[in-house]
Design a protein around this nucleic acid. Structure first.
Lengths: 134, 134
DNA sequence: GTTAATAGTTACCCTAGTTAATTATTTTTC
DNA sequence: GAAAAATAATTAACTAGGGTAACTATTAAC
């Protein structure tokens, strides 16, 4: 399938741009949003967990986490292990998650307009398999 | 389709990383490769054409083009219009294109291993439609 | 109890993008 | 055909976000 990856990459920047414009209103960016989403799903997690999941180096995650703490959206939970920091969403973080979740879902619906559920399912499968192969 | 875009974005960095590692051998990066591909397809083009196609601002394209000229992979063709620069691949540029094309195609095949031509076709359609909607 | 591994941080650098302003040229308009 | 508007490319200055290397503190392993 000639051109598949080229098209994939070409779409990335415009998509990212519209997501970042949406999140800007809440002083967020997509990279910060990723951390919020991860914590929403997992409840609590360490920086290393986040680093591994998104395949981004630890210093980058440190920065994201500090920024989110400054914004009051996440906080550290006390832990017996004093080496690792366990993070979770604050009440405000959960509130912001809900608001952004709705807006992002709406944007996603708009972007996938005209595509059947089946097509989307196939695209999803494609992306999942690719991940394993990379 | 919950998680589709999230997965899409999550894949991007690892994919880009492996492409950049491949291209590094030739002192290239994927952003430079995009210009080469565009010129290969179009034969000749101005900076504005490239800028529009990839939806990247002109100063970024100026830099990419200068870098590729330094590498001797592209060059300016004389034109009646002295305001615009028309660029094309040099002989060396075409040679490097062929080499990288083969390597990238091999990588793409490796990455899409286990996916039917039909699935890939659907994924491609998906990406094309998304582009219109963004 | 010493050594090795792990979590997080700091400092510094790199890639690659953006906006705003500028120059040179071409096109439009009257 | 001269003045005004639009266009192509560039320069300068800035930003987001990531990476590596080196370090500290703590925990796990032998």
């Amino acid at each position: 399938m000639e051109g598949l990856f080229r098209q994939y990459i070409r779409i990335y920047r415009p998509l990212m741009k519209s997501l970042n414009e949406l999140l800007e209103k809440y002083q967020l960016s997509y990279s910060l949003w990723q951390v919020i989403v991860y914590l929403k799903d997992e409840g609590t997690s360490t920086l290393v967990d986040i680093s591994n999941y998104y395949q981004v180096e630890k210093p980058s995650i440190t920065r994201r986490v500090h920024r989110l703490q400054e914004l009051g959206l996440i906080d550290e939970v006390p832990s017996a292990n004093r080496r690792e920091k366990i993070m979770e969403l604050t009440t405000e973080g959960k509130r912001i998650y809900q608001i952004c979740r709705e807006e992002i879902t709406a944007l996603e619906h708009h972007i996938s307009k005209g595509l059947s559920e089946e097509e989307q399912q196939t695209a999803f499968q494609f992306l999942m398999k690719i991940q394993d192969n990379i």
